[in-house]
Amino acid sequence: CFGYRPRPKKCIYEFTDLTRLAHESRFSVNEIEALYELFKKLSSSIIDDGLIHKEELQLALFQTPIGSNLFLDRVFDLFDEKRNGVIEFEEFVHALNVFHPCAPLEDKVDFAFRLYDLRQTGFIEREEVKQMVIAILMESEMNLSDDLLEEIIDKTFDDADADKDGKINKEEWKAFVLRNPNLLRNMTLPHLKCITTFFPSFVYNTGVED
């Protein structure tokens, strides 16, 4: 009578799902359980539907669900493997696995490349770099003259674009970050090595003692 629509059913993970996720990742079963506690917290912060919406990720990182941020959009898109506008728990684990301190460097290099390849052409293009530099300048309320901005981008491409075709391919990117490992600092989250201590409440629901 009132246009009743049932609420979407929350996905409840069975112990076998958590075990499988542990096998597919660098996390133990207890760590997957602790990550599930984090996921539940994030996915219920605005809409309690067992899925992380972009606004919920934004709320967690910026303490506000309002506004837009180019970089957060890219992070969200890479977490959202199914490209359906929400992050499911499995996608959350897959992405955070790359940020694990013990994840292979190759995975971090690849993830960072995909972050910066805004148009997903398989290259980091000069226009994309310029767009990201302008976005970070706006985000941090820094002012740079156009000349200095162009100079910074020129220098970056002088260093990174080995074949001088005006775009950075994956091999060039890999060589560039190996010379500048600081560029991957955001690709490692030390918290993930001791995730069970951040979310000790997992012990109330645990299915196994690691």
Binding site: A60, L61, F62, R74, V129, N180, L183
Partner: peptide
């Protein structure tokens, strides 16, 4: 010497996921 463009870009808060683990 000039900044590397990616040095600047990597400063974005949007790329810093450590905020996920912060207490409310």
């Amino acid at each position: 010497s000039l900044f590397n463009a990616f040095d600047l870009i990597s400063l974005s808060e949007g790329f810093d996921l450590s905020g996920l683990f912060e207490e409310d």
